[in-house]
Design a protein around this nucleic acid. Structure first.
Lengths: 215, 215
DNA sequence: TATTTATCTGACCATAAGTCAATTATATGG
DNA sequence: CCATATAATTGACTTATGGTCAGATAAATA
């Protein structure tokens, strides 16, 4: 446990924030070793150098830890898109950015069914607002980059979010150890990595926006 | 527990299949009352009128029960699409069919992250083959109905699968009790039902196929 | 009817999330 | 600087649930 000035307890708000951040950093390290599903609160307590009870002072549940990690990861992804994408590279960057924040894709895959199902309402709504705002920024960015009319861009970015959700699910399958997969199933699994499945679908969606599709 | 001829134990293959089906039917009833996440193996044993040990004779884990329910539901959905869709109604039917097999959407939302993560390989591959074959039938159907070239139709149906995955996730949020949702979040939640989000995205994808998008 | 087979049972185990009374580091007042 | 108050921290405990297996017994067979 790292805390400024050799103090063992966080009294000020900034110290509390530092401890919260330290727990999240420990969670990242731990997940790097054992995966999201392998993370237990006991192990997280050990990794963070605090007791289990302390974890529950800073987070109301395991899933709230994961939700906080996801929001962080999403912020990184959005930042990359806004910084690096343009009309020509939009799809490429949207396909690549999620892989540069390593926890984004696996957490997105668990976001609704696993994570949101076990976070108290007040925390959930607060985090959802952040996600909504980031989503709106991406929508505005897409409108600007593609030159599509506002409502079309919103439609497209909603569709792209759906697609990301789906691609994140597929990605879990793709990460399976292929040596245990029968030959006839290999192509199915291999084609499902995020970086393959998302851009293919995104191209269709965006061509549906820039051309004159229905509605 | 219902078994033909007042017999208490399933000895023949057909009796075993009947018992397996009875367990799945019990699971459907139970889920109807308590939801997927609320289903416990103890409760399922009681509902099916067998002991917990018996459940584990017919299914290797809770998730294998859910996987079997999903494959059933998917078969229903595919059957509806093949029976009722045509060029004009494809999107409408694909948006409606999943809601007519009530377990399809919530199970799809949990399929990869929750269900597949805890099913032994041999069962998983067997069920995945069924899913792949059904997916290929849908792809062929889409090709036939839209008149799109084979590879375009495959691309589109993969994209539509991704979109369904994502829409299934969104649908979980939409089913939340709206009275507990703050006003500013209502529109976000309301718009996320499967029947709203899927068709919107599907239209974009299909217009990207029938028009001449890139690639 | 006796014997064999293997289905079925439910008490038991293992794991992991979450709780809370007791402890004690820090802040504060005298 | 010490006594007291405050609240952050602890970790043994509780609870919930998925999964196991040795024994019981229904049904088939000789």
């Amino acid at each position: 446990m790292v805390l400024p000035k050799n103090r063992q307890r966080a009294r000020s708000d900034s110290e509390k924030e530092a401890r919260r951040d330290a727990i999240l950093a420990a969670a990242q390290r731990l997940i790097g070793r054992v995966g999201i599903d392998g993370m237990t609160m006991n192990a997280l307590a050990t990794e963070a150098g605090v007791s289990k009870g302390t974890l529950y002072i800073y987070f109301s549940s395991k899933e709230e830890v994961l939700l906080a990690l996801f929001v962080d990861a999403m912020a990184q992804v959005v930042a990359i898109i806004e910084a690096e994408a343009n009309a020509d590279t939009l799809i490429e960057v949207m396909g690549r950015a999620p892989t540069e924040a390593p926890l984004f894709v696996p957490l997105l895959a668990r976001l609704v069914a696993v994570i949101e199902a076990n976070v108290p309402d007040t925390s959930l709504f607060a985090e959802k607002r952040k996600m909504r705002d980031m989503g709106q920024r991406v929508a505005a960015f897409i409108a600007q980059v593609t030159g599509a009319p506002e409502h079309k861009a919103r439609e497209a970015s909603t569709a792209l979010m759906l697609t990301m959700q789906g691609a994140a699910q597929f990605d879990i399958s793709a990460r399976r150890d292929l040596s245990s997969v029968p030959d006839d199933m290999r192509p199915m699994f291999e084609g499902q990595s995020f970086s393959k499945s998302f851009p293919a679908a995104a191209r269709l969606i965006l061509s549906g926006v820039t051309s004159d599709g229905p509605s």
